[in-house]
């Protein structure tokens, strides 16, 4: 009820900016600033284990944001993002080991490689819809995994390869550089999605989410919009893949192309809240907490993750963030466009 009441209150005339500044816009900004300061300074006050956990948090957050943009906004349910994580990992191997580039420079290059390979993959995938799209993304990921695994000796086959050139860095320097690269990646993912959603593309995405055919009918280039999103998500996953293996050093195809990358990320978004920017952030935090709680339970923990995803979909399909928002909406990231008050008069009586 409380949200309805606020809608009835008089609003400024429509000449105001579409994102009218409201009183509680300041709080999220202060919060965001504080979190940023804490994260940037973390290597100076946190210990190594906290720093490693934070880095892991960053790359799961980046993957979750990218997946959420695809699934939650563009209606493309992918279970094959591990293809691009793996491609990113092997880009690191090729650029750093074979071509002798600085491993950290390979992170943006991995994003580019992933994006280039995502293009032909999108030609195939965009012929399919819904659940078929989902399984096809997986088939493509499996195809790439098997191709790398079995047929390319140069990449080390099933045993994979080690990024030896990382040995040139002092361990602390490597961890710090990795940490900041991860922070940058997470920020790019979060704010990339944020600005994409507030752009014209974002408007097109919302139209597609509401009704794809309708959007097409009014001239939204649905294919182009979806392709932008797909390539963006591939780039984020590619960069993440390179980053992950800068930390882990040994690249093996079964691990780099593991379906678990997709599974954890889907779990994160589902539990946090699909179709919002805040959801994946909250989801990543919850995922880390849960994983900590369930540590050592092995099979039980995976079973519980699966059960939680099912229960969430049945009883809180908008995730924990959705549940919180239902009581008191506090969007940290304002991407929703509000209907001008004059179109809303009729809603009150319904």
């Amino acid at each position: 009820m409380s949200e309805n009441r606020s809608e009835i209150e008089p609003r400024p005339p429509m000449t105001a900016a579409p994102y009218a500044r409201e009183a509680h816009v300041a709080l999220p900004l202060v919060l965001l600033g504080a979190v940023l300061v804490a994260l940037v300074s973390l290597p100076f006050w946190g210990d190594g284990s906290l720093q490693r956990t934070a880095l892991e948090f960053f790359y799961f957050l980046a993957l979750a944001q990218a997946w959420n943009l695809m699934a939650g906004y563009a209606g493309m349910m992918s279970i094959g993002q591990q293809a691009f994580v793996g491609i990113g990992a092997y880009s690191l191997v090729v650029f750093a080991e074979d071509l002798g580039l600085n491993p950290f420079l390979t992170i943006p290059l991995a994003a580019v490689v992933a994006m280039i390979l995502a293009l032909p993959s999108s030609w195939l995938l965009f012929r399919l819809k819904g659940a078929y799209f989902a399984v096809a993304t997986w088939v493509i990921a499996e195809t790439v995994r098997l191709a790398v695994n079995a047929n390319i000796d140069w990449l080390g086959g099933g045993r994979g390869r080690t990024v030896r050139s990382l040995g040139q860095f002092d361990r602390h320097l490597r961890e710090d550089l990795g940490y900041y690269a991860g922070l940058a990646l997470a920020l790019i993912a979060v704010f990339g999605v944020f600005f994409l959603l507030r752009s014209k593309t974002g408007l097109a995405l919302q139209a597609i989410r509401d009704t794809e055919n309708g959007a097409r009918a009014v001239g939204v280039e649905t294919r182009r919009t979806k392709r932008i999103v797909y390539l963006f998500a591939a780039a984020i996953a590619g960069a993440t893949g390179a980053l992950i293996y800068i930390v882990q050093i040994n690249v093996r195809p079964d691990a780099a192309f593991s379906i678990n990358w997709a599974a954890y990320v889907i779990f994160i978004v589902v539990i946090g809240g699909i179709g919002t920017i805040e959801g994946p952030i909250l989801g990543t935090i919850l995922f880390f907490v849960l994983r900590d709680l369930l540590e050592g339970l092995e099979a039980w923990s995976m079973l519980i993750f699966g059960l939680i995803a099912i229960v969430m979909m049945l009883f809180a399909p908008k995730g924990i963030w959705g549940v919180m928002n239902a009581h008191r909406p506090v969007p940290l990231f304002r991407t929703a466009r509000k209907l001008p008050a004059r179109f809303k008069a009729d809603e009150g009586e319904a």
């Binding site: 349910m77 819904g130 659940a131 589902v270 079973l303 699966g306 995803a309 099912i310």
Partner: peptide
């Protein structure tokens, strides 16, 4: 979940996949 499109069913069966695999493992 029928009225909410295909996504919930896909995610639920994806979750179920993990439940069955790990249940069988246990």
């Amino acid at each position: 979940t029928l009225k909410d499109g295909m996504m919930p069913a896909v995610i639920i069966t994806f979750g179920l996949s993990f439940v069955i695999q790990n249940g069988l493992l246990l």
